[in-house]
Deep mutational scan, measured.
Amino acid sequence: VTLFVALYDYEAITEDDLSFHKGEKFQILNSSEGDWWEARSLTTGETGYIPSNYVAPVD
């Protein structure tokens, strides 16, 4: 499982989006939707859509 880490803070715009803070880690559930990925936060356990350009793979 490839994990991703937030590079910036993000505040949800719609109820389907997931708010997060810089440094938060995610498991990507679906990355086939283009620039918005469905993800689960490993910090909160919540799922929602995140902007793919706000995250990077964890080394």
Rank of each mutant, 00 (worst) to 15 (best):
E15Q: 12
N30F: 07
F20S: 01
F26C: 01
L7I: 11
G23L: 03
I13C: 07
T43V: 11
H21A: 15
P57C: 05
A39W: 01
K25W: 13
Y8C: 08
L18R: 02
V55T: 03
L42H: 05
L42E: 10
P57V: 08
F20Q: 00
F20Y: 01
S32K: 12
T2W: 11
T2K: 14
E11Y: 10
I50N: 00
A39M: 04
G45K: 05
I13Y: 09
S32N: 10
E11T: 14
A12Q: 06
I13D: 09
L7T: 04
T44M: 02
E38T: 10
W36Q: 07
F20L: 05
T47H: 10
L29K: 06
D16I: 14
L7S: 02
L3M: 10
V5W: 06
E24H: 07
Y8V: 07
D35W: 12
S19T: 09
V5S: 04
Y10R: 06
I13S: 14
P51Q: 06
T43E: 15
P57G: 05
G23A: 03
S31T: 14
A12F: 02
E33A: 13
I50P: 00
E24D: 13
D59A: 12
D16L: 12
I28W: 02
S19A: 06
I28V: 10
Y49T: 07
W37G: 01
H21T: 12
V1P: 13
Q27E: 14
Y54I: 06
D9A: 06
T43W: 12
Y10K: 03
R40N: 05
T44R: 04
S41P: 01
Q27T: 11
D35Y: 13
S41W: 02
V1D: 13
E11F: 12
A39I: 03
T47G: 04
L18N: 01
V55M: 10
F20K: 00
Y49K: 12
N30S: 12
R40D: 02
P57Y: 07
L42S: 05
E24V: 03
F4W: 14
H21K: 15
L29Y: 06
T43M: 11
G34Q: 11
E46V: 10
E11A: 11
K25Q: 13
V5R: 04
H21E: 08
T14D: 12
A12I: 02
T14L: 14
G23T: 02
D35L: 12
E38K: 10
K25E: 08
W36C: 06
Y54D: 01
S32H: 11
F26T: 00
F20M: 09
G34L: 12
L3C: 06
V55P: 00
Y10A: 02
Y10Q: 02
F26M: 05
Y8S: 07
H21L: 11
D59W: 12
K22P: 03
Y49F: 10
H21P: 06
A12E: 02
D9I: 02
E11M: 14
I28F: 03
R40L: 13
H21N: 11
P57R: 09
L29V: 08
E38F: 15
T44S: 09
E11V: 15
A56T: 12
S32D: 10
P57N: 06
G45S: 05
I13R: 15
K25S: 06
E15K: 15
K22V: 11
K22M: 10
A56V: 13
Y10N: 03
I50V: 09
A6I: 01
F26S: 00
A6N: 01
D9H: 06
G23I: 00
G45T: 04
G34K: 14
A12W: 02
I13Q: 13
P51A: 04
D16Q: 15
D59G: 14
S19F: 03
T2M: 14
A6Q: 00
E46C: 08
S31N: 13
S52N: 06
D16H: 13
G45V: 02
E33H: 14
V55Y: 01
V5Y: 14
P51Y: 07
A39H: 01
W37T: 03
A12C: 04
T14H: 15
S52W: 08
I28C: 04
A6L: 01
A56F: 09
D9K: 05
T2F: 09
V1G: 14
E46D: 09
S52P: 08
G48K: 02
K25A: 07
E38M: 15
E38R: 10
S19G: 06
D16R: 15
S19W: 03
K22Q: 10
R40I: 14
V5E: 09
T2P: 14
V1I: 13
G48A: 03
T47R: 10
N30K: 09
S31Q: 14
A39L: 01
G34H: 13
G45M: 07
Y8E: 09
E15I: 11
S31H: 10
S31L: 10
V1T: 13
F26Y: 01
W36A: 05
A6S: 05
D59P: 14
L29P: 04
L7W: 03
W37V: 05
F4T: 03
E33W: 12
E11W: 13
E24Q: 07
Q27V: 15
A56H: 08
S32Y: 11
D16G: 13
W37H: 04
K22C: 06
G23M: 03
G48M: 03
Y49C: 07
T47S: 09
F4R: 02
D59L: 11
A12Y: 01
D59R: 08
W36G: 03
F20W: 01
E24M: 05
T14V: 07
I28T: 02
E11I: 15
G45P: 01
S31I: 13
V5G: 03
D9L: 03
E38S: 07
E11N: 12
V1E: 15
L3N: 05
F26N: 00
K25D: 02
K25M: 15
N30V: 08
Y8T: 06
T44L: 03
T47Q: 11
N53I: 11
E33L: 14
V5F: 09
Q27I: 14
A6E: 00
T2G: 14
Y49L: 15
N30A: 08
Y10M: 04
A56N: 06
S31M: 13
Q27N: 08
S31C: 10
A39T: 01
K22L: 06
S32M: 12
L42D: 05
I28S: 01
V55G: 01
S41L: 08
S31W: 10
D17L: 15
L18F: 08
D35G: 12
K22D: 02
V58L: 13
I50Y: 01
S31P: 08
D17V: 14
A6Y: 00
F20V: 04
S52M: 10
R40V: 14
P51M: 08
T43L: 15
A12M: 03
W37P: 01
T2A: 11
P57I: 10
N53Q: 10
F4Y: 14
F26P: 00
S41M: 06
D16V: 12
V55D: 00
T43D: 14
T44Q: 03
T2Y: 11
Y49R: 15
L3V: 13
F26A: 00
V55K: 00
Y8P: 00
W37F: 07
G45C: 07
T43N: 10
E33T: 12
D16Y: 15
E24P: 00
Y10T: 01
R40K: 11
V5L: 06
D16T: 10
P51H: 09
T43R: 13
S52A: 15
D9M: 04
H21S: 11
E24C: 04
E15S: 14
T14Q: 13
S32P: 11
I13A: 13
E46H: 11
L42I: 10
Y8F: 10
V55N: 01
E24L: 01
E33K: 15
D35Q: 11
T47E: 09
T47K: 14
Y8M: 09
L29W: 06
Y8H: 08
V55S: 01
V58K: 04
S52H: 08
D35M: 12
V5D: 02
L29T: 07
V5A: 05
I13H: 13
A6T: 03
I50H: 00
W36E: 04
E46T: 08
T14P: 03
H21Y: 13
L42C: 08
E15Y: 10
S19H: 05
P57T: 06
T44A: 02
I50A: 01
R40S: 07
N53F: 09
L18C: 02
K25V: 14
T2D: 10
Y10V: 02
A39G: 06
A39K: 00
G23N: 06
L7R: 04
N53G: 13
